[in-house]
């Protein structure tokens, strides 16, 4: 019911926004939000912060580019009803693979391993020309046309991104209540006890990573349609950090916060030119990240919850806030 209340104004958004706001801000936020959701999901329910989400999204994007219409003459074009499921499957498999590699590592170790995987993939796409067309990557990637209208059309891409985001959120909330989803949370809380019950911890961990790969892949497909190109820079440290920053701004332990973080990030990215020299955007985003980590480690979502709690009962100060005040 609450979700429906948010959905109505979002559906009405195209009526009030012009093409710039709709595409550059709203659609982009949704796409980045879906990718960041894949990270927040892992962080919240498996308790692992993964830096390989841009890699999974990139694998979906590269699949679309390689098997779709592009202007660099690499790959074999296939119809889009083949490439889209294929891209999602590859992204899911890559997620499972990352999970398999990182399955025995937790906390900072998992961060180091997934970061190494992500950066290694970046260098790999740069070196390899047969599959990834090296440094230049793929350009001229076109979104499929349905009944003569391209899905890249601002309105259609917005609605598509909105429905993908909605489905992704619904999938997450359904998945975490399923037996497998509950096992994943049990592994997060007490891996030793899960093992003692005779349940393997490998399967839930790999499944959680695979599911996050599916989410990241969905975001990756939308992103390659939106950008109309993909290259090594789409999977480099930049996007890896962007996804992380979005999740942290929204709150790593709040899956829905990914979209809040995405809106803040996109607004900063779009309008930073007015605040600060365009060239120094990275300094700005670094300072924002540092401030969030220092002032509100739970992210904006947590901050809002704390304030709401404080407004309701001024006496009972929330724990989080008193720690840092």
């Amino acid at each position: 019911m609450k979700q429906a209340l948010i959905l109505i104004p979002l559906l009405a958004l195209p009526l009030v926004l012009n093409d710039f706001w709709l595409t550059q801000v709203a659609t982009r936020s949704l796409i980045l939000g879906v990718m960041a959701l894949s990270l927040s999901f892992l962080a919240t329910y498996l308790g692992v912060v993964s830096f390989a989400q841009a890699t999974m999204a990139g694998i979906a994007g590269y699949t679309i580019a390689y098997f779709g219409p592009n202007t660099v003459g690499v790959g074999t074009p296939l119809p889009f009803w083949v490439t889209i499921p294929m891209a999602l499957i590859f992204a899911t498999l890559s997620g499972a693979l990352v999970g398999l590699i990182a399955r025995r590592s937790r906390g900072i170790y998992a961060i180091m391993i997934t970061l190494a995987i992500g950066v290694a993939f970046f260098y790999f796409t740069r070196q390899n020309y047969t599959l990834f067309n090296g440094w230049t990557g793929f350009s001229g990637v076109r979104a499929p046309e349905v009944a003569g209208v391209s899905l890249r059309n601002p309105l259609l891409l917005y609605l598509l991104s909105l429905s993908t985001a909605g489905i992704a959120l619904a999938l997450v909330s359904g998945f975490v209540r399923s037996p497998l989803g509950l096992t994943i949370q049990a592994v997060r809380d007490a891996p030793g006890r899960v093992l003692a019950l005779g349940i393997s911890v490998t399967t839930p961990i790999v499944a959680a990573f695979a599911f996050s790969g599916l989410l990241a892949g969905a975001g990756g497909i939308l992103n390659v349609w939106y950008q109309e190109r993909i290259s090594s820079f789409s999977v480099g440290l930049g996007p890896i950090i962007d996804i992380l920053i979005i999740s942290v701004i929204g709150g790593l332990r709040h899956p829905g916060g990914a979209f809040v973080g995405a809106v803040v990030f996109v607004l900063l990215d779009t309008f930073a030119v007015d605040l600060i020299d365009r060239e120094r955007f990275n300094t700005l985003i670094g300072v924002v990240l540092l401030l969030i980590v220092i002032v509100a480690p739970g992210g904006l979502q947590q901050l809002a919850q704390d304030w709401a709690a404080r407004l309701r009962s001024p006496q009972a100060k929330p724990k989080q806030a008193s720690e840092h005040s």
């Binding site: 900072i108 990275n282 670094g286 300072v287 980590v293 220092i294 480690p297």
Partner: peptide, 26 residues
């Protein structure tokens, strides 16, 4: 200031590395 909270330290050091890299580029 964040000793003991490893995730927070990692995130903060990432932020510092972004800022440093950008200022050095400048």
């Amino acid at each position: 200031w964040m000793q003991g909270d490893e995730l927070r330290q990692t995130l903060a050091s990432i932020a510092i590395s972004i800022i440093m890299a950008d200022l050095m580029l400048w």
